[in-house]
Design a protein around this nucleic acid. Structure first.
Lengths: 132, 132
DNA sequence: ATGCTCCTTCCAGCAACCGGAAGGTCAACA
DNA sequence: TGTTGACCTTCCGGTTGCTGGAAGGAGCAT
């Protein structure tokens, strides 16, 4: 398969696939004309990567996960630990974003949103606490 | 004030303050020795920026917000619209992260986490759906 | 031969900084 | 007076995970 085919079948852009080769996540063969030549196994790995990325794993985590995936003697504990750690980070991010959301929601709620200049959002940013 | 003083008082690293000058968010004067020389107004702006950044506004949003802040003839509707748009993006991000969290939570829950190789997390990533 | 699409490599850039090198300045202290 | 140490300066490169574009080769249809 050429890169266009695996791009379509994996859902990853060709650019991304080349990048993954660049950083050593995959190692497709080359045809005589210099084109990358992908086997089913490469496609499978790319789909794995696409899914792991969609779950928010970093590239380095993905590298580790691929390594574990290909290691028949892995301990599931290692995979679980990685996933758990990632989950913890995601939960922290959610908490951060929720704090922003709550503050912003209140500020937006307090702002008249008319054509007058008076604005509690700017006041809050400027350090004048107002509105409740 | 020198940069170290405003860094301490605004809570922003000196590097960040220099960067903000670079991209034109602030324009501190210079002393005879070439050191940046910050007025109270600069400090005030930096605190404004720090707070806006903490609420997740992008640098470009911050630039706009600062502009609105300094414009006495602004309409609060413009500020509110910007904040509302940002809020919507944050809510979308939260939703994305929550979807990841939910999937990961389930996968982590399904994984034995022992020293055997069998792992539903890897199976899921590989496209074999298992575990409910 | 021409045109079109696909492929290749390489280079630049995005956000929002951070780290470090190389060097100038300043205040204090022996 | 010399020197130490803390501060300041600029500049360059790296971070993450790609994305866009330029310049050029390959393959196929007409």
């Amino acid at each position: 398969m050429n890169i266009g085919d695996v791009a379509e079948r994996s859902g990853l852009p060709a650019k991304t696939i080349r990048y993954y080769e660049d950083i050593g996540l995959i190692r497709p063969h080359r045809s005589a004309n210099g084109y990358r030549c992908f086997a089913e196994n490469d496609l499978h790995k790319l789909a794995f990567l696409a899914r792991a990325r969609a779950l928010g794993f970093s590239i380095e985590d993905c590298r580790t996960l691929l390594g574990l995936y290909e290691d028949d003697t892995r301990a599931s504990a290692d995979v679980k630990a990685l996933a758990q750690e990632h989950l913890t980070k995601i939960e922290a991010k959610i908490a951060d974003l929720e704090a922003m959301r709550d503050t912003l929601t209140e500020l937006v709620h307090c702002c008249a949103g008319d054509n007058r200049p008076d604005c509690p959002i700017l006041k809050d940013l400027a350090g004048d606490i107002e509105c409740l």
